[in-house]
Design a protein around this nucleic acid. Structure first.
Lengths: 393, 393
DNA sequence: AATCTCTGAAAAAGCGATTTAGTAGAAGTT
DNA sequence: AACTTCTACTAAATCGCTTTTTCAGAGATT
């Protein structure tokens, strides 16, 4: 096995024209007043060949030394020092494309998400980025916006672009690629694809038990869209827990008239608003609502209020995800927190592990735990069954 | 001048193993049942050399034909057809690194933002992505999180990674790189850097005139953090408009006791909450508050309410940005909308124009217009001056 | 018959690295 | 003296593509 080429973080540490121990270190060194603002547009950067020429050595030698190849062990320290000195002096940086072409490693990974500007994806990406940049990897992003053709195409293009691996967030996965793949909340079973998933059973339990203990028995639900990869698993967990708690109604575990589903591909609370309107229109009374996510919970609260219902006085609402603004809703949203950033981080970590030690970590499921964040949208169930809205009054 | 190599969108259109006119077209072709799920991990992809060999032609010929070089004009249609047929048959895709190395074009751009998971950046990125992918470009993302060293480093690394251009979102820019740069809300004046900015004068005018017409005369302000590139410009606009409207107080245009500033680098409404607490603590009465962004407005509303003040009954609040959840706050937030997605799109468009026609579009400022979205957090100023909170009662 | 012009393609020189296989010369060993 | 063994490097082959230059042969022109 040949030596692995250094990645750029190692390079930086070595030749650093700007001293940096590690990219994401805590250093907050003030930038030099005029350091990098080197006036004229940079002329052609120094190549390995030029550098070697200048040193009266062969490119081979310089490359070996700079990459700390064991083959270079026999080279006297003196020469090595000269090489490093020159590299630093001329700010030598190896051409990335050339290296990648030769080594078949691009230190680049592809991330595919439903939509970058969606809070869920963005939080996961933030975690992914954290780990990746720290390890000297960069990443491409592409949003498929739930278009099936793009879901298949982008990964292929990523591979074409020589990524070393792929992370798919909240995206159904069917492909069998030649590079390692890790999914976040992708509930699939493609062999060789690692999964980072939330413990949905626990999540359902936290939410439902909380409502149950507050005295709620008639609970309405907003399911996720069909295309969302969490929808099915989450729903199954909810049904299981509900049955366990004895929340049965008319023979079925959950009253089907108290279940609405998000329809459409919009990141706005509008969808939850519509779903809730439908629940209210059914005329079936309920004192609590468990929404698919915080966004839809916001829409739901508005819909409830528009129908003259008070949250949490008449109806308690529980969201899911704990996005940034959940805490600052009015009233502040009670919700099941998913550690999205951490999930991204773990995904990146496992991906790099698989890239660097092929065959490792193939057991494909990694579970993270949810947390119930109790805020202001849940309260004890009202003693008297509330009306379900204006249409009943 | 030599011919320009095709970008991958053109390739796809040419060789497409999956038929796609244009990546972001409206097609929603159902994926083939088992098409791309080619079982075994893909063996080494077909290279140009192999393909040429198989055709009993030289790589040169094949390359010229596939790239539609004018040099290939003399080659009979018959041969060209054979080449395309074979390329399609073997799903030939040129190695990206090799092409880029040779042509010095990577069809990749770098995007640097304060933080991916921040709604502002994410919205802009969404617009950037839209245009970029459509044109066959991909992009790297990096978040600097306001660390000055990273703000300088990442762009350099991007260039090292052979990006064809850079987009910096809400990031101060000092560098002079060898590739085109476009900034979004980067109020800098580096030559050769194009800027996409909001018409802040108009924005200030929209908000202040609205409040003024509602009868508000004592208006408090939350300024942005020092590091935010919009802060200074926006504030200057506000002062100008305020003076114009005659909102003077104690000799100065704006009562300095009614100005708070966001402190700290958190994407949460907490900062606005703190700022508002300080405003209230000053004891100075005000009937309206103009926040730096929607996030801080949310925090502000909460702080006001905690002090027993009603929004908009006692105090009107105007936000800035119009992020997704603004409409679903309770009460729904009145805000100055920035067309963030469009700003991203324009940035990408100008960048590609500059990449493909060097020297074009060097006049560096492109202005987009804000829009006032009136919702529920603004109302006529109360007839009686409101108390400023519990500490006065 | 000699020259010129097309036609249809191939050779070859990169792009800027990495890495294997060698190789001169010095030093050490028998 | 002949050998092995280090030491300190280098040559050369890739990686997979692009693009300029060259070139052989057919046909047209003088």
């Amino acid at each position: 096995m040949s030596i692995a080429a250094l990645n750029f973080v190692q390079y930086l540490r070595l030749l650093a024209p700007f001293p940096c121990a590690r990219l994401r270190s805590v250093s907050t060194r003030k930038p030099k007043a005029d350091g990098d603002i080197s006036g004229r547009a940079a002329r052609k950067p120094m190549s390995l060949k030029n550098l070697a020429e200048h040193l009266a050595l062969s490119p081979a030698t310089v490359s070996l030394v700079i990459n700390r190849s064991p083959v270079a062990d026999s080279i006297p320290q003196d020469t090595k020092d000269r090489i490093f000195a020159a590299a630093r002096k001329f700010k030598y940086r190896p051409n990335f494309l050339a290296r990648s072409l030769r080594t078949q490693r691009s230190f680049t990974i592809g991330v595919i998400v439903p939509e970058v500007s969606d809070g869920y994806s963005a939080s996961v990406m933030s975690g992914v980025e954290d780990y990746l940049l720290q390890e000297g990897y960069f990443y491409f992003v592409a949003s498929h916006r739930h278009r099936p053709d793009l879901i298949d195409e982008y990964p292929n293009i990523f591979v074409e672009r020589s990524v070393d691996g792929l992370i798919a967030v909240d995206t159904p996965w069917r492909l069998n690629l030649s590079v390692p793949v890790v999914t976040v909340s992708g509930h699939n079973d493609v062999k060789g694809v690692s999964n980072i998933v939330l413990n949905h059973s626990r999540a359902a339990e936290l939410a439902l038990r909380h409502l149950f203990h507050l005295g709620h028995r008639r609970i309405a639900f907003i399911k996720g869209q069909e295309f969302s990869s969490d929808t099915a698993v989450r729903w199954a967990s909810i049904e299981r827990v509900a049955s366990h708690l004895g929340l049965t109604r008319n023979g079925s575990v959950i009253n089907p008239r108290l279940v609405a589903q998000l329809e459409g591909d919009s990141p706005s609370p509008q969808l939850g608003h519509m779903a809730t309107k439908m629940l209210l229109a059914s005329g079936e009374p309920f004192s609590a609502l468990f929404a698919f996510n915080d966004i839809s919970a916001m829409g739901a609260i508005r819909a409830l209020r528009e129908s003259g219902l008070n949250v949490p006085g008449d109806v308690s609402v529980v969201g899911f995800d704990d996005i940034q603004s959940a805490a600052f809703q009015n009233p502040a949203l009670t919700t099941v927190r998913q550690p999205l950033r951490e999930m991204g981080r773990i995904a990146a970590e496992i991906l790099l592990k698989r890239i660097n030690r092929p065959g490792s970590d193939l057991h494909s499921k990694h579970t993270v735990e949810p947390e119930l964040i109790i805020r202001e949208t849940t309260a004890p169930a009202p003693a008297v069954r509330p009306l379900t809205g204006r249409h009943r009054s």
